[in-house]
Design a protein around this nucleic acid. Structure first.
Length: 422
RNA sequence: GCGGUAUUGGUGAAGUUGGUUAACACACCGGUUUGUGGUACCGGCACGCGUGGGUUCGAGUCCCACAUACCGCCCCA
């Protein structure tokens, strides 16, 4: 070994072959549910964007922007940032590629499966590089779309047979409602300003809604008599929220209205939701899906005023819940070599079996004993083994050994047919 | 950004009040069986205890710094 041992950057992970089947399944399920059943098209956006794209949309006061962003200046002195979340980049792409044009069917449905970056202290279910599966739908204000999008997320989780999921939902109302509530909340909490936790004192100025989901026990006590957001929704917002919950009821979705639910990013309005798991494996990282409606963002990026809704699913968290790892593909033939002098022949045979029969073929490259080679054949659950030695090289006659029962048959190489391996 | 715990071979780990061959098991490799497997038996397998300093006659065992992992806070997916 060399002297210096490198370690992967803090909060990152190597996705080794043993975990890949899980990721492949996630990709496949996303394709089936999102793409096929709900007609969302896949989009991949750049890993990094202009810093302002994230800073402006997420809100300067959000922690994601103020302390968790991986930002840097490139050689052209441009202020860039690794994407901390998926929505902003997708909105930018929606506008830049003019997907709002009349030739695109509305709503425009997009989904992504990408890694995100947040400079945080790692913990179970929280990495610095992590993966999100997200969906965004542009161009419809229909409350039924809200319900369908939530149902889509549920369908996705159902494909993994996840139990104990709780859907929490709330409405922030439209801009006017949200502003009215915000004012009422500030008025109320200002009387107790001195008693608020340190963080909440700051939030009172920057983002008072966030105080609602403060974990501080005393904050929560002060909030008991606080104004309720649902009381401040105007008639439109109220009706809208009712239509969403009615649709969810009709779908049979098990949900809970949580008036204290607010989200970490500032761009949401009207419907917001989270899906939580009760699984003890995730404790403080119980939220595996979060999303909601937002408007104004498309406009902010220079597109037409467009309503939108989306959500993100944390895949690392999902994986700790499903945890099932499938075995690798079965090996069809293991070629055992008596010694290295027959390797040329054995390798040619391997090439032939792969090419002609499309077999999965394995053979040794480390000059191990025959016993070891047979052990490998067992371990990889090879269906057949073929021993290659001087005799076989001379006679071109192969002995096919069926590993399950040990029976052997001799077949001339030139007469080999796929049926011989059934 | 704050607090706590941990870090010994490919893996799980044992390592006594600091004492000089780093236990045991799994896996792996070889042999018993010089061309035939999954069992059994025998043998091999850490010049090293996260990294760097320090204390000491002597440190995996004590002290400091750093790195990483995990837990909690903050926050979030």
């Amino acid at each position: 070994m060399s002297e210096k041992l490198f370690q992967k950057p803090k909060g990152t992970a190597d996705l080794l072959p043993s975990i890949q089947p899980v990721w492949q399944k996630i990709t496949a399920v996303a394709q089936e549910i999102f793409e096929h059943r709900y007609n969302f098209g896949r989009i991949d956006t750049p890993l990094f964007e202009n810093y302002d794209i994230f800073a402006r949309t997420s809100g300067d006061s959000s922690d994601v922007v103020s302390k968790e962003m991986y930002d840097f200046y490139d050689k052209g002195k441009r202020h860039m940032a690794l994407r901390p979340e998926g929505t902003a980049g997708v909105v930018r792409a929606y506008v830049e590629n003019k997907l709002y044009g009349p030739e695109y069917e509305k709503p425009v449905n997009l989904y992504y499966l990408e890694s995100m970056f947040r400079y945080e202290r790692p913990q179970a279910g929280r990495m610095r590089e992590f993966h999100q599966l997200g969906a965004e739908s542009f161009g419809s204000d229909s409350p039924f779309l809200d319900a369908q999008v939530i149902q889509m997320a549920i369908d996705f989780f159902k494909a993994f047979k996840l139990n104990n999921l709780l859907v929490k939902i709330n409405s922030l109302g439209n801009d006017a409602s949200r502003a009215a509530f915000r004012q009422a909340l500030v008025d109320y909490l200002s009387q107790y300003e001195e008693q608020l936790s340190r963080d909440s004192k700051i939030r009172l100025k920057t983002n008072p809604l966030r105080i609602l989901d403060s974990k501080d026990a005393n904050d929560q006590k002060l909030l008991v008599g606080a104004p309720k957001i649902l009381d401040y929704l105007d008639q439109d917002s109220k009706n809208r929220f009712k239509q969403v919950t009615d649709a969810l009821d009709a779908f049979g979705v098990n949900y809970e209205i949580d008036e204290k639910l607010v989200r970490g990013l500032d761009y949401y309005n009207n419907t917001i939701f989270e899906i939580e798991t009760q699984d003890p494996k995730l404790k403080s990282a119980a939220t595996i899906c979060g999303g909601g409606r937002y408007s104004g963002m498309v406009e902010e990026f220079g597109g037409p005023d467009t309503p939108a809704i989306g959500f993100g699913i944390g895949l690392e968290r999902l994986i700790t819940l499903i945890g099932e790892v499938k075995e690798r593909d079965q090996v069809d033939v293991y070629i055992v070599q008596t010694d290295s002098s027959v390797s040329a022949f054995a390798n040619l045979l391997a090439k032939h079996l792969r090419e002609v029969f499309h077999f999965s073929v394995l053979l040794d490259y480390t000059n191990r004993s025959m016993k070891s080679q047979f052990r490998s054949a067992d371990r990889t659950q090879a269906r057949y083994s073929i021993v290659i030695g001087d005799q076989e090289v001379q006679s071109k006659e192969l002995t096919l050994k069926k590993m399950t029962d040990g029976s052997q048959r001799k077949v001339l190489l030139d007469n080999l047919r796929i049926e011989d391996f059934s």
